[in-house]
Simulated scan of single mutants.
Amino acid sequence: MTHDPNGSPPGGVLERLTAALGAEAGRRGPPPVERWNPDYCGEIPLRIAADGTWHYNGSPIARPAMVKLFSTILRRDPDGRTVLVTPVERVGIEVEDAAFLAVEMAVEGEGENRVIAFRTNLDDVVPLDDAHPLRVEQDREGGFKPYIAVRHGLWARITRALAYDLVALCEEREEAGERWFGLAAGGRFHRLARAAELS
């Protein structure tokens, strides 16, 4: 990782970002990070570990309120880089797996009318719908890791315990001549994997 190329001491980066956010504090709703396009200022020594813990300069950030604040200005740029962005500064950070963890799931109803929503470790509430789809990756042991889209190109990894709960809701269906494993919710069937890949 590199520090701020402008020569500022690394300890000042978070303070600058916080100060820039302070200017936005009077606005209602989440910061409009999709509209902010300041120059890229290099990487800072901030890392989101696979367990969802945020680290700065190698040490966990002990203030949950600070982590939540910075999570509101997080986005994934088209080049694949995850950045913290304000109206005046854009800095890259390291993400080991996903920016968020989905730690709680609420389910109501059945079939296509079923409503499923997830809460992340930073208290975002994300419904399973067209704007927030699921995706699945294989882990090193050959198992599966499900993710749900949160916002601005960022994903939440669904914890192992919730993944088992999610699988319990799944079924096989034939669509477009293929058998799919997935679940019905939010008015449609969400495909997770071809049934042949699971056998």
Rank of each mutant, 00 (worst) to 15 (best):
M1I: 08
T2D: 15
D4T: 11
D4E: 14
D4V: 07
N6S: 13
S8K: 10
P10L: 00
G11E: 15
G11N: 08
L14F: 10
R16I: 14
A19C: 02
A20I: 07
L21G: 15
A25N: 04
A25D: 06
R28P: 08
R28M: 12
G29I: 06
P30V: 14
P32M: 02
P32Y: 01
V33R: 05
E34N: 10
G42H: 00
G42Y: 10
G42T: 01
E43A: 03
I44T: 14
I44P: 02
L46E: 02
R47C: 13
R47V: 13
A49C: 06
A50G: 13
A50M: 06
G52L: 03
G52T: 06
G52K: 04
T53W: 05
T53G: 03
Y56E: 06
Y56D: 10
S59K: 09
P60Q: 04
P60T: 03
A62E: 15
A62G: 09
P64I: 11
A65D: 08
K68A: 10
F70S: 07
F70Y: 05
S71Q: 05
L74K: 12
R75Y: 06
R76N: 13
D79R: 05
D79Q: 07
G80N: 06
G80I: 05
T86L: 04
V91E: 06
G92W: 06
V95K: 11
V95H: 09
D97C: 00
D97G: 07
A99E: 09
A99T: 09
F100Y: 15
L101T: 05
A102R: 05
M105F: 11
V107F: 11
E108A: 14
E110H: 11
E110T: 12
E110S: 15
G111L: 11
E112S: 04
N113K: 12
R114Y: 01
A117G: 13
F118C: 11
D124W: 14
D124A: 08
V125L: 05
V126S: 03
D129N: 14
E141C: 01
E141P: 00
G142W: 06
G143V: 02
F144V: 05
F144C: 04
I148Q: 08
V150E: 02
H152N: 14
L154A: 12
L154G: 03
I158M: 00
T159W: 01
T159A: 08
A161R: 09
A163I: 00
A163W: 02
Y164H: 00
Y164L: 09
D165K: 12
L166Q: 04
L169A: 04
L169H: 03
C170S: 11
E172L: 15
R173G: 05
E175T: 02
A176N: 12
A176L: 02
G177C: 07
G177D: 14
W180I: 02
W180N: 04
F181A: 01
F181C: 08
G182P: 04
A184N: 14
G186D: 10
G186V: 05
G186H: 04
G187C: 02
G187E: 01
R188P: 01
R188F: 09
F189Q: 15
F189M: 13
H190Q: 10
R191W: 04
A193I: 00
A196C: 03
